[in-house]
Amino acid sequence: MHLVVCIKQILDPEIPPSDFRLDSAGRGPAEGIAPQVISIFDENALEVALQVREAAGEGRITAISIGAESAVDALRKALSMRVDDAYLIRQADFPALDTFGTARILAAALGKLPPADLLLCGRESGDWYGGQVPAFLAAQLDWPYTALVAAIRKTGSEWNLRRQSDDGWETIACSAPAVVSVTNDAQNLPRIPKVRDNMLAFRKTITVWTAADLGLTSESGCGPNTRLKTERFYIPTVSRQCQMISGDSVVQRAEELVEKLAGLRVI
């Protein structure tokens, strides 16, 4: 069994709004305003893959990322969570990458790996929230696609996929190979690597692939998307005035809040 997880390195999404600044061109966040981390849903996807392997008692997991050199840190983290192999595809070779291009490159990388039974992605990247790459990959590979999966089991030759529906839960059976996008759930909270595994991860090789290694050129339909023009990119201002409840005792504060709510006619 071979599971492949696509991970993207992003600017830490938890930084406070006060630290957020735009780059000089005003088209993205300024560099260095926050550390780079694995996109949060990709961590969930890694966790799901690890659980599938544990339940099956066998299997290999490969993590791949298209990114800058710094993305080795994301792959290193994946290795310390105990994936088996890690590949970095040099994003610098594709200067104007769009989502079609990302999917094309990942599919090309997949073609160079041992055949995969399952390809896992995050539901959306935690920076720009594209929410497209896994579907594009599925469409390109012509594999079944399922979004927003929380947990996966292997049953015979099929994948059993559990996901939240609008009012509860549903289970889907699909054939292998398949593409899934993963969302967060209490069951797939990413594990914290053990100190020993952190050390072992540092001794592992991360293979770097260039465009040429994948048989692609920067022009192989990898962007840019010329149909969409960014008209404005800005930091929105919030201007709500919060009224703090300030009575002297807890009881007074509670009563003051109730009065205010009654005044608003919501209770």
């Binding site: 989502t99 079609f100 999917a103 539901r123 959306e124 929230y129 594209g130 929410g131 497209q132 579907a135 594009f136 599925a138 469409a139 390109q140 696609y145 399922t146 979004a147 927003l148 996901r163 939240q164 529906s165 609008d166 998307n225 149909r227 969409l228």
Partner: peptide, 22 residues
């Protein structure tokens, strides 16, 4: 919706469209 998030990018890919989600 879940089916919208699932199907829209698949259709977008097939049409070679500009796709923006959510």
């Amino acid at each position: 919706t879940i089916s919208g998030l699932e199907v829209a990018p698949l259709v977008g890919y097939k049409l070679g469209a500009s796709v923006i989600m959510d």
